[in-house]
Amino acid sequence: MQINDEELKNASWDARIKLTQQEEKELHEQLQTFFKMAKVLQKIDLGEAEASFGAIKGYNTLRKDIIEPSLPLQLSLENAPDADSSSFLVPKIVEE
């Protein structure tokens, strides 16, 4: 199994990550080992096995619809890298 550069670039973009050339090379190497080992996934017969997605088979519970205090504004904005007196600020949305 060979992952092409395009696939790797798309995947890292989807994670909003830009790999350096060195990192790309390293990841390609890691993936080679991975896909070799992961062949087993396609080979073993998983029969009717259902995907489990969680470690517990328990059920959820519900909460009553009662208002609880929210954070004070100053605490909400405290950790923000960029904010004015009421809102978080983000750079220009549109790229052009």
Binding site: D65, I66, S70, L71, L73, S76, S86
Partner: peptide
């Protein structure tokens, strides 16, 4: 028309000042 958000107890009232109806959960902290 619930009083609170889907997964936390913050109010859903319309028209509040910005970022006054938020908590660590709905802010994704």
């Amino acid at each position: 028309l619930t009083n609170t958000k889907l997964f936390c107890g913050c109010s859903t009232a319309f028209g509040a000042d910005p970022n006054t109806q938020v908590c660590p959960l709905c802010l994704g902290l």
